[in-house]
Design a protein around this nucleic acid. Structure first.
Lengths: 202, 202
DNA sequence: GCCTATATCTTTACGCTGTAAAGATACATT
DNA sequence: AATGTATCTTTACAGCGTAAAGATATAGGC
């Protein structure tokens, strides 16, 4: 009767899964090393052997988030037979399905920006956004960078305002039954007229 | 020789100032009730009498941030003799001058959203953004809301990406000497073509 | 002027946290 | 089979939020 074998076998993955469950259920404030250890059924000091400190755990969790985020963005891009790429919708959808995780992924003060796994997952995910409209250029002009960033800034800002509850009053005064997706569509169409025009102006 | 009088006199304000100093100097992780008390030179339990708990302190600090934020946005609007209102620049400028505070102001999981002082300061500040292009309407259309939110989402997203360091690599490949302001200007001009067109499209 | 009520601040205490160090156990390699 | 290494537990300590009780200054009634 070995209810709890001494060696877990895949404790690192189990701890990351436990951490995500806590993050989703109780929020970032409740996500502690000891809570993750309890959730995984190991002693409170076990996580340190796999992640070093709390920042290490959060960073690996964020890395796994960026991996899935990138996958979903790529899937959305592949399925884009509509005239407008709806990566924006995929961006918001991931954030809505994983609100606390998404916010953690962009909180550099709680993450270890030097972690190579995290860095790779992040650039891989975010590069999906960058190479939508143009191949990577060595010496892009300010205009090109501005066009590239305006889309990202727009969807990122909308998403974070939504997660932070800042759009709740707006949705309240919007026409009956307006969803965040509807509102995003309106935001995009308001900002999207320029996409039709050639890159260097009307 | 009463070096430390028992009654401080204006401890609440002193604690908020101390909290802001810590936030600026050491970041949000280091901003604790006890650290604020140390910085203000009082016992570690003194803050609880003025703020209740840590959330209370953070909320009042965020409220004071929103007050100054609103002031600066109003000032920028008043000085807008240029053709394009440069509230976006003021938005980013405040965030750059108070990066940790700005991020705290939009972290609803650390704040008490029911605090009336906080609520009032926030709506007062953010309403400056709303009534730029139109008077408040009772039953706005989705298109009107989309146009209103697209500007806010854009500048908010750009600002947070900048604060989070996500634009650093972009600035690295940008033309020599490009500043965040330059890049913001490019982002705005890329997204601003629509302002000229009538609200319901080309 | 004095006396009491109240507000403000300190002291003490407790459980939780991160983290380090040392001990125990399973695995892996020879 | 023996030994080294990786993995996990136990123990320990300081810092944290927070509650409760004690100390001190202010304020108001007389």
């Amino acid at each position: 009767m070995k209810t709890t074998p001494y060696h877990h076998g895949a404790l690192k993955e189990a701890l990351i899964a436990a951490a995500e469950a806590i993050l989703r259920r109780d929020g970032l404030n409740a996500l502690t090393l000891r809570a993750a250890a309890r959730e995984a059924g190991v002693s409170h000091a076990a996580p340190s052997h796999h992640f070093g400190d709390l920042t290490g755990l959060l960073t690996e969790l964020a890395a796994s988030g960026f991996q899935r985020f990138g996958d979903q963005l790529r899937t959305a891009r592949a399925a884009a037979d509509s005239k407008r790429w709806d990566g924006a919708r995929a961006y918001m959808a991931f954030a809505q399905e994983n609100p606390a995780l998404f916010q953690l992924m962009f909180r550099s003060d709680r993450l270890d920006g030097s972690n190579p796994i995290f860095r790779e997952a992040r650039v891989k995910a975010l590069s999906v956004l960058a190479d939508v409209h143009q191949a990577p250029v060595m010496q892009p002009s300010l205009e090109q960078l501005g066009a590239m960033l305006s889309g990202w800034s727009l969807i990122h800002g909308y998403t974070l305002l939504l997660l932070d509850g800042r759009l709740t009053p707006v949705l309240g005064i919007a026409p009956e039954g307006t969803t965040p997706e509807n509102l995003l569509e309106a935001v995009l169409s308001a900002a999207d007229k320029r996409r039709i025009a050639p890159p260097d102006g009307a």
